[in-house]
Amino acid sequence: MKFSLKIWRQKNAQDKGSFVNYEVFGISEEMSFLEMLDVLNEDLTLKGEDPVAFAHDCREGICGTCGLFINGRAHGPLRETTTCQLFMRHFKDGEALTIEPWRAKAFPVIKDLVVDRSAFDRILQAGGFVSVNVGSAPEANSILIPKKDADHAFDAATCIGCGACVATCKNASAVLFVSAKVSHLALMPQGKPERQVRVLNMVKAMDNEGFGNCTNTGACEIECPKGITLASIARLRREYCKAKLKP
């Protein structure tokens, strides 16, 4: 297979950046999308050019490092799939592929396709935890959690923090990300004592980072590689209203 690639190149945060066209040949169906980029980079390196910087690590869809905007879609064309889990059999031979970084004010470009997502970490630090010290935990089975609640909490907790929700949102809102953590902990008894202060602090941190507001377009739900739904956002709103209204 061969592909025509149009890739965003940007030297650093200050550089303006632009698209550059490349061709890749000899790609097989079994190769992953990132392996196709590896082939391009090997070729560029041997030609003496700077290879394309892109973020990746586990290459099995769980670390949340990778994230490319492919033909106008966060993580490319497949539902509930990270960029690293795309395989070339998911594309047509000869197809033109436009590859861009996540674009959001709160995610400045570091180089080429790599962006700075530390804003997410700062939001978690504002309240994404249960205040329990090592040594003070009660016996595990003394906390009973209905299976349904545990399952729903798990569904929210699968967020990998990749930022696709922000990248795909026209407002560059981080509400799906924040709602996933708020939901996970609000659904479990361990998270209940701090639920109000948590939601207020996390939403405040999100606003401080320069993310946009949510207007319920639902784009985030479509592109989330872990299938986190708008139900989380609804829960975030309920949590937020309750916390705000409480004296």
Binding site: F129, V130, V132, V134, S136, A137, P138, E139, A140, N141, I143, L144, I145, P146, K147, A150, A153, F154, A157, H184, L185, M188, Q190, G191
Partner: peptide, 22 residues
Amino acid sequence: VAIIDQAVAQGVPFAREYSGLL
């Protein structure tokens, strides 16, 4: 045994039985 206690207290959503037990 203490690791499981600690993780549960942090809110790690381990798989559960219908009884609510781990």
